[in-house]
Amino acid sequence: MNTLNRENREADRGQAEQFITPQASVTEIADGYMLEIEMPGVKKEGLDISVENNELTIIGRRSLPAVEGMLVHRESRPENFRRAFELDPSIDGDKISAKIDQALVTLTLPKAEHVRPRKVTVS
């Protein structure tokens, strides 16, 4: 799959909301691709996945736990997540499915029927 990075392009143009790029893995599976994206602090309700012009965009808005006390040491970043991928033409955009478990977003991107390998029997 052509997973061209188009991260935060709009953010560069002075868009109000700033995003950070989550870590992702792309794996080719039997009938398509599997995309895994890490979005700590994101619940199902905070996910926004869209396909437009062959570009898949995943936005994750965090609902971070309220913590009592003063922050004395910080390594995390408060921004929400955004990542975009250019879809391979073989992917059937209508059949993309997603699930989220402990902030790991897993997308299944099946290949369209007509591009799947087919066995032709010789009669």
Binding site: E36, E38, M39, P40, G41, P65, V67, E68, G69, M70, L71, V72, H73, R74, E75, S76, R77, D101, Q102, A103, L104
Partner: peptide, 22 residues
């Protein structure tokens, strides 16, 4: 993984980002 530490009068809270773990 990113670790944040909070302190209040009677406790500390450590917050660690560990997506997709069991």
């Amino acid at each position: 993984p990113a670790l944040d530490l909070y302190e209040s009068g009677d406790h500390f809270v450590a917050v660690v980002e560990l997506p997709g773990m069991r």
